[in-house]
Design a protein around this nucleic acid. Structure first.
Lengths: 129, 129
DNA sequence: TTTAATGCAAACCCTTTGCATGAAC
DNA sequence: GTTCATGCAAAGGGTTTGCATTAAA
């Protein structure tokens, strides 16, 4: 079965620091935050714990988007769906939803555009259960 | 002023190959496609041209999401806005839009979720014009 | 002829991993 | 005592860059 997890000092501090802020820090920013309390922690431990915590749903890992950039020969704006298993991307046509930006005001930002992103499982991954 | 651009053989073939497919290829996949017609092209040229073409709007570079992953101590699903200049991420509260997934059918995929993503310029970048 | 673009290779950045050691449980 | 997690350092994957050379315009 899946191995159990242990609430180590490191994992606890990482979670606490992350809960303190709303800045959506990167892994190295978390590293800087946590190092002030645990100076000997390693970056590898940060990465491993962020993954564990995201896996268990205690934190959110943003950009479900894959690591590699992808390109589209069709420059017309349209929605995309990404396979959460393999990263494959497909087009989503006829999304009958428009996000109104007029008067949209987000604290600390000037909104320029919005889009809908879909997640899913592609047929190839589906059959490779 | 901005330097002019030249329609090189390489750039032309990259654009043509990208227009041929709907697979949203990664840079190395474009490399493989193009290499069949221009065997001596380099991966660096692929990257440089994909950027030029995206800049000029002839193609789309997906995942406006940044390169680094970001983490959120608040695991409640909520929308995010990303600064297209510096990558900073903020929360978007009270987005009064729900994307209905029931009956949603996308060719080649089983849809599992959807979210709205906002792009913008953060105040810090705004003032650093 | 001028200068943007190329090919090549090295450098870069972020992330992951192997391994011996340490600490939850 | 068992085994999951750590620290460290090296390796990995994707992308960018410096430089001499080539080729658009």
């Amino acid at each position: 079965m899946a191995p159990q997890t242990r609430m180590t000092k490191q994992r606890k501090v990482i979670l606490e620091e992350l809960r303190k802020v709303t800045s959506h820090p990167t892994a190295d920013e978390v590293y800087d935050m946590v190092r002030q309390r645990l100076p000997r922690i390693s970056l590898g431990t940060i990465y491993r714990n962020l993954d564990v915590l995201a896996e268990s749903g205690e934190i959110l890992k943003l950009e479900s988007a894959g690591n590699q950039k992808r390109f589209d020969g069709n420059p017309m704006p349209h929605a995309h769906i990404r396979c959460t298993r393999c990263g494959r991307v497909g087009d989503v046509m006829n999304v009958g939803i428009e996000v109104p930006l007029d008067g949209m005001d987000v604290y600390g930002f000037t909104v320029t555009s919005a889009r809908i992103e879909f997640d899913g499982i592609c047929d190839a991954c589906q059959s490779t259960n």
